[in-house]
Amino acid sequence: MKFNTVIPKGLRIYYYNELKLYRNFLHKGELSTAWYHLERTHILGQSYPIEHSYTHWLMLKFGLRQRNIKEVFGQVIRLLVGGWKSFIDHVPIGNTGGSDVPPLKKMELSPDLAHILNKYRKN
């Protein structure tokens, strides 16, 4: 069994770039584009407990801002279990992390994210 504790430096750059894009679009009030980048942040960080949990925290805050009870409830559940699943590297690759998709559903990656993740995936 492999344990993930720290996101690789190269992958961290992509993760933080998506976070920056999320914040920029959120600040502009472009909520659907902000959410898109938050989902990409989730995909990039879901194998690492800190990044995974932090993304779900941001998704929870987003849901609260939108007064979206389904999203808030879904994120609370994900915050309770997501981090430890990352630690043991048992995450559904490509899952966007929102409450609109089942938490364990593996999803197809966009070509750019597949390329990025393949460079940093542990074997």
Rank of each mutant, 00 (worst) to 15 (best):
T41F: 01
V101F: 02
G10V: 13
E39G: 00
H37W: 11
V91C: 01
V81W: 14
Y36W: 14
D112C: 08
T5H: 01
S86A: 13
I43L: 06
L26A: 04
T55I: 07
G94Y: 10
I13M: 11
Y16I: 13
N17F: 10
P8A: 13
F25N: 10
G97T: 08
L60M: 11
F62R: 08
H27M: 12
L11R: 01
V91N: 07
S86M: 11
L58W: 01
N95W: 06
L60S: 03
G98Q: 09
R40W: 03
M59W: 03
N24Q: 12
Y54Q: 11
L64C: 06
A114E: 14
L38T: 06
L38Q: 08
N95L: 07
G10Y: 07
Q66C: 04
I88P: 07
K20I: 04
D112N: 09
R12G: 01
G10D: 02
Q66H: 00
E30S: 06
G29T: 13
G29I: 09
L26C: 00
Q46E: 13
L44P: 00
I93V: 13
G10W: 08
E71T: 02
T5P: 00
D100T: 11
I7V: 02
K105D: 05
Y15D: 04
K20N: 09
L60P: 00
G63E: 04
D100P: 00
T96E: 09
L109C: 08
T33C: 00
N4D: 08
G45Y: 08
I50F: 12
F73Y: 06
L58N: 05
Q46Y: 07
H42F: 00
S99R: 02
H90G: 05
T5Y: 10
P111I: 11
Q75R: 11
D100A: 14
I69Q: 06
L21Q: 10
A114I: 00
L58V: 00
L113A: 05
V81A: 07
T96R: 15
M59N: 07
H56P: 08
T5A: 10
D89C: 07
T41G: 05
V72L: 09
M59V: 06
R67M: 09
